[in-house]
Amino acid sequence: MDKDELIYMYRQMLLIRVFEERSAEMYAKAKIAGFLHLYNGQEAIAVGAVSALNPDDEIVVNYRDHGWALARGCSARAVMAELFGRADGTTGGRGGSMHLVDVKRHFWGGYAIVGGHLPLAVGLAVAAQYLKTGRVTLCSMGDGSTNIGTFHAALNWAKLWNAPIIFLVENNQYAMGTSYDVHSAVPMLQKAAGYNMYAEEVDGMDVMAVREAVCRAAERARRGEGPSFLNAVTYRFRGHSMADPDVQRDKQEIAAWRQRDPIPRFADEVLLKQNLLTEADLQAIRKSVEEEVEDAIAFADKSPEPSLDTLYDYIYMQPVSNMQIGGSLMRPPKTIGRLSATSNGRG
């Protein structure tokens, strides 16, 4: 593998880690509101998977999506601006942390209803198959989403129609605070076996292992061999979200998993061991990543709030001619925007 690509993967993982640490800080400072689900510990999965795919392969993920957006090439500036709810964010401040998106990069979004995005991902894969684009769809999810109806409906459909899709479970072993043995009746791979689907277990703390597994699954899909299921076993180093005090998980368990941190592990076992980089190089990378995130925060802070005039944009992609007098839109959209600006949101 190309040296530059390995270094890039390391830098991406580190960028995600630093980005998330600084996001937590910004949350504490109330620059970020709502829910904030951090990706710390799971970086090897997004970075490994993205590195295995073509740039035009489709990616659909859940609400723990900052790492995926960054891995896919969204700028730290755009992602941080979105977390701040600003006009320069990935959706101009519409979606926030859980709904990042960049369709130009074939990143179809973070989805915040557990399991809700699985049928959408199957649909993207079916469209690629029907339109013969040759694209593979990667659908990531948490272990907590493997019990809901859409999971089973999606796996059944994907297998039935031989869809070119990879179901990638980021198995961090907890559905919010509920551990795997409390939320699932059978081991993860048995769920895939129920649909006679090709499946592998992967070390989710090993970026190269993830990359290789996703490569194999993508090749299968491109050869017309249909869906694959990957159980990437991992661990999140922080609580479910910033609202989670993380008291339910065993402290020793957390410490043990931190020992398997994918970032220093990749540095030690690959970059340093193969003499691709020195300790000084690693320090330089960390410095440049910290600067990039610092710049992103400054950028987000300066980015304007979205204009009230945009409130009704894209309610429809194809507006109806007499919509301004229809339904709840009794006044022209821009009038409503101005009213809410001057009268405490009434209007």
Binding site: G116, P119, L120, V122, G123, T150, A153, A154, N156
Partner: peptide
């Protein structure tokens, strides 16, 4: 849920 959901995804695609 899959008939509609797969339809949404295919429409996106």
């Amino acid at each position: 849920e899959a008939i509609v959901g797969v339809g949404i995804g295919a429409a996106m695609g």
